[in-house]
Amino acid sequence: MKRITLICGHYGSGKTNLALNMALEAAKSGEKITLVDLDIVNPYFRTVDYTEVLEKQGINVIAQNLEGTTVDAPALTARMFSIFDESMGRVIVDVGGDDVGATALGRFAQRFNESGYDMLYVINRNRKFISEPDEAASLLGEIETACRLKATALVNNSHLGPQTTAQDVIDSVPYAKAVSKVTGLPLLMTTAPKAVCDEIGDRVDNLYPVDVVVRLPWDN
């Protein structure tokens, strides 16, 4: 993996939960890590909402958060530029949903190209507008155009929230493989909530167990 990982995809595909898991895992293994919330299009369920938990684990959080408000101003923080300094260690960027959200990334396209990056395209077959492989591929095209960067791998994050079953995950693999075929991108991994991973066993390749960090307020 490159030092910088960009996470993009359809809104609601589970980018934030994946970014949080990857960051928390890296922090646990003692890596120096920065998590960037680049979602400036949606003021709900954002990485920045988890700043306290993340900072407790020693994760450096960069977010556009005007004095702790929820204002949805389409502005970026100057701290973004610090991620291109190699001494910042590993960097994960949680990008906003769809092409609209990925537009913010385009502002830094040249810098990302210079420093190198992996860009993960997160897919979820249970989301209507990307439930067909062709639709997922066409949205990726829109995202890549908006951010002027190219995805390097797929993450199959097909889930149904807290009701995700082992079977849901297993059934999503053919979809993910089809998306991989249409887009030409390798399928890096398939995520599953930790609670169902035992049941899945070895029936899914490259299984990435995740904690469901992004929850409804009354489920916490």
Partner: peptide, 10 residues
């Protein structure tokens, strides 16, 4: 309300 509008459920 905003929570119901923004939250995701199957």
């Amino acid at each position: 309300d905003g929570m119901l509008g923004q939250m995701m459920e199957p």
